[in-house]
């Protein structure tokens, strides 16, 4: 028997996630990578519910629940306390896309600028799913949410949070996807080796909010990566590296699987395809450029 990911389970049974939840799968992998000596700081997000009501917790590590905007600053404090106590415990800030892209961005920016020793993982389900599918700045162009109904779908593009974090000159930034757990775990382990703030953004599809069959979670996540909508790459001290170069699916194939895009017409889809191709081209150029400067 050969397992491709660590066998130890630090996420207990009976959590409160929806069927086929990408976020709970992401947490399972993250804890497999980080191990027992970890403290998780969780702001308001799906995971503050999934973990269980007080006094229960389904995680086998200490969890510190905190306010929506404070994931990174609370983690900074925990990290400082660990330093004073002389412990080498990993501090994990675990926030959703709302708590990272919108509400928590100033705290995260501050922590990144100070270089506090934390691993910040954002599980990106592209809207405020916990409160009932409201748009966030991580919601992609064209998507339906309860605050951007189909007739007036979201007209702004998704905020490029990874590039914002790269601009902070932190040692390690990466994107990951739950359909590639080996890659995700490798990136977390790599992040653990750096001193300073590390940022990993993992795509965690939400069957409830994206309107698809829960069984297709992994299939859809793979499609997001293969179509180039969610490219997997890492930026290590300013050097870009694309983790998965295959781009063999179209945007149309990806979005036809989801109910949140069902109102879109051909023209809008063509425009989305053009934008994805442009972003992909830019990423390849960046990899070439920074790879060149390294030599």
């Amino acid at each position: 028997m050969k397992l491709t990911i660590p066998g130890e389970e630090l996420m207990g049974h009976g959590n409160l996630s929806c069927q086929g939840c990408g976020g709970s799968l992401a947490m399972r992998y993250a804890l497999k990578a980080l191990g027992r000596d970890t403290i998780a700081v969780i702001p308001a997000c799906c995971w503050s519910i999934i973990d269980g009501p007080f006094p229960y917790s389904c995680l086998k590590i200490p969890v510190f629940h905190t306010a929506f905007e404070t994931a990174a600053s609370a983690a900074s404090g925990v990290s400082a306390a660990m330093k004073i106590k002389g412990k080498k415990t990993t501090v994990l800030a675990w926030a959703g896309d709302g708590g990272t892209f919108d509400i928590g961005i100033q705290a995260l920016s501050g922590a990144a600028e100070r270089g506090d020793n934390i691993i910040y993982i954002c599980y990106d389900n592209e809207a405020y799913m916990n409160t009932g599918i409201q748009r966030s700045s991580a919601t992609p162009y064209g998507a339906w949410t309860t605050t951007t109904p189909a007739k007036k779908f979201k007209s702004a593009p998704k905020k490029n949070m990874v590039e914002i974090m790269v601009a902070h000159k932190i040692p390690y930034t990466a994107t990951a996807c739950i359909a590639y757990p080996e890659d995700f775990i490798k990136k977390i382990k790599k992040a653990k080796g750096f001193q300073g703030t590390k940022y990993i953004q993992v795509l965690a599809p939400c069957p409830t909010g994206w309107r698809y069959d829960p069984a297709k979670t992994i299939e859809l996540s793979k499609m997001a990566v293969e179509s180039g909508i969610y490219p997997l790459y890492e930026v290590e001290n300013g050097i870009y590296k694309i983790s998965r170069k295959a781009k063999n699916k179209t945007v149309k194939e990806y979005i036809k699987m989801q109910g949140r895009f069902s109102h879109l017409t051909g023209e809008v889809i063509d425009e989305m395809q053009k934008n994805v191709d442009k972003e992909w081209e830019l990423l390849i150029r960046k990899e070439e450029f920074y790879g060149h400067t390294k030599e």
Binding site: H13, G14, N15, D51, G52, F54, P55, Y56, C58
Partner: peptide, 16 residues
């Protein structure tokens, strides 16, 4: 501070 006292294994989600 407030701390958790038990895990969630009492919550048999199989009934969903």
């Amino acid at each position: 501070c407030a701390m958790s006292l038990a895990d969630m294994s009492h919550n048999k989600t199989g009934s969903w």
